[in-house]
Nucleic acid binder design. Structure first.
Lengths: 165, 165
DNA sequence: GATGTTATGTTATATTATAACAACTGTCAA
DNA sequence: TTGACAGTTGTTATAATATAACATAACATC
């Protein structure tokens, strides 16, 4: 199986690749990846664990950035519009998008043991959503698809899930 | 097609049926559907439009119920535990469950034109979620599945969607 | 009617997000 | 080179959603 957020990997590569990608994409689109926007994106990518707006705010504050809520919410709004991150509604938290070139909402696996999020783009799910909507004559604009549970790596550490008494 | 939240129907029947069902179910389970809990459930069922906690609170206040946030959040917690309602994470709002006998999270169609929610129990979606999770060795505990768009009835009123200039 | 459990009341506060307006920055044409 | 505009950021305040903590009341049952 391919690498996922859950499996061990060189995460610094994820970060640098995401930032490079974002820079190129913003240049192409003629929009500005300003310092605060880039820094927010880097912070979001600091791990595969979705991060909350106020946690971002605290991190920015430590680094001398302006630290009022609108600062971070504006950056999140911009990054969201550019498809560079997703909001996870069930967590009120934000996670980087690996595939920002084409607009999409994505489907997410959220592990409650390690708190990491893995984005999927499942054609099974897309088809199932389409079929269900069609059955009701419903036209889909967007969706929130979050699958919550335990990832493979955490399942393989049973001692953490079922501590000995 | 069967009746849905979106199509015209005798809604008073939805309400009374939901309350009857809830009363029976609570009796069977030996839990108490106290006045405030029942009233919250009735308010949630007042329409098929999901309702927010503070809107419930305001309605309770008008009727002389205690009106501090914990009152309504406790009722919502109880009703959620009993499977009598669902929270919609993308809206921070609550909607009654038609099928509270068996525990489930459900899938929702949310119409942005009429703001109504229709719960689905699509085996297509369940299967697609399972397949996607299995591919990653992921064990599902629960999920948030919200399909946002425009319902059949609202699509059939094109003047509302594309106002004449 | 004493006791334990469940439910509610009450006050305060935490968490998440936006409104509104002022000030600054970059761009580009006149 | 400046002035006009669009876009971005700063700042203050507040809205909207949700929970913590502790006191009191109601109910069950022995």
């Amino acid at each position: 199986m391919q690498a996922t957020a859950f499996s061990p990997h060189d995460h610094s590569h994820c970060i640098s690749s995401a930032i490079d990608h974002a820079q190129n994409l913003c240049t192409e689109r003629g929009v500005r990846l300003t310092p605060v926007r880039q820094r927010v994106l880097e912070l979001v990518w600091r791990s595969h664990q979705p991060i909350g707006a106020y946690e971002l705010l605290a991190a920015l504050a430590k680094e001398g950035f302006n630290s009022a809520p609108p600062t971070v919410y504006r950056a999140l709004e911009f990054l969201g519009e550019q498809g560079l991150l997703h909001k996870l509604d069930s967590l009120n938290a934000y996670v980087g998008c690996c595939n920002p070139d084409t607009p999409h909402q994505g489907h997410f696996l959220l592990c409650e043991a390690c708190n990491k999020a893995q984005e999927l783009e499942s054609q099974y799910i897309n088809l199932a959503l389409k079929l269900s909507a069609d059955q009701h004559g419903f036209e889909i604009q967007r969706h929130t698809i979050e699958i919550i549970g335990t990832c493979k790596e955490c399942l393989e550490k049973p001692n953490l899930l079922e501590p000995t008494l």
